[in-house]
Amino acid sequence: MKVLHDTGVLLGRSMRHILRSPDTIITVLITPVAIMLLFVYVFGGAIRVGTSNYVNYLLPGILLIAIASGIAYTALRLFTDKQRGLFARFHSMPVARSSVLWAHVATSLVSNGISVVVIILVALLMGFRSSAGVVAWLDVAGILALFTLALTWLAVIAGLSAKSVEGASAFSYPLIFLPFISSAFVPTANMPAVVRAFAENQPVTAIVDTVRSLLNSAPVGNEIWIALAWCVGIIVVAYFFAMRAYRQIA
């Protein structure tokens, strides 16, 4: 109970940080929305994806970009707490140690959940339509939550071991670009062999394809298992190194 209470109090604190820093909201929401507008209304006419509704095709990739840029701020918040001595303060208090870290993880899940919902609402205005039922939507929510959790544990490693503010957030840039070299924007079939091999065997393609199939009520096939395996695999490995980094800062 004490753990839940403390995590809740600290979650409230970090959520307040987000609401008070407009740049967080701008980067996490406006950048993915701008990419979505650009691709739908500028490039979209020239992109052939085999469906007339390009927003439907694009949305899963945009959601992953939003999550990848959102977790950069998770790393930043962890780094700031470490640097300002707040971890030391909390750890020398009768507060469960796991609460201090899990509050950051929970903040990441909640804030990314909010940005995913907002981006889906914007996509609806742009013509996104889904035939998915409640179960399929829950599956989508589950996969996106797992993806967020996987990147969050990576962010914990980056935030706790960084030596500077720049270092704490720089790790997310490659993650933000990963969707561009995947099936998120265009089908992989037309890519040169080497690029295609990379695109088809990196986690984003499996996750994007799964989410897209679920939203279009199409059969998901093996992709969903590959997507889950990637997410769970990253979570397990990143959690191990994140906990090691966490033990070292105290």
């Binding site: 403390d6 109090v9 600290l10 604190r13 307040r16 940080h17 008070r20 820093s21 300002r84 001595g85 707040l86 030391a88 303060r89 909390f90 020398s92 208090m93 009768p94 507060v95």
Partner: peptide
Amino acid sequence: ISLTGQFAAVDGILTGRENLVLIAKLRG
């Protein structure tokens, strides 16, 4: 105990009152 470290460990984004309320809630 209470530790006041070498650098003021305050949450810069919260107000002074919110900092105190935060610690009070954590200490029950």
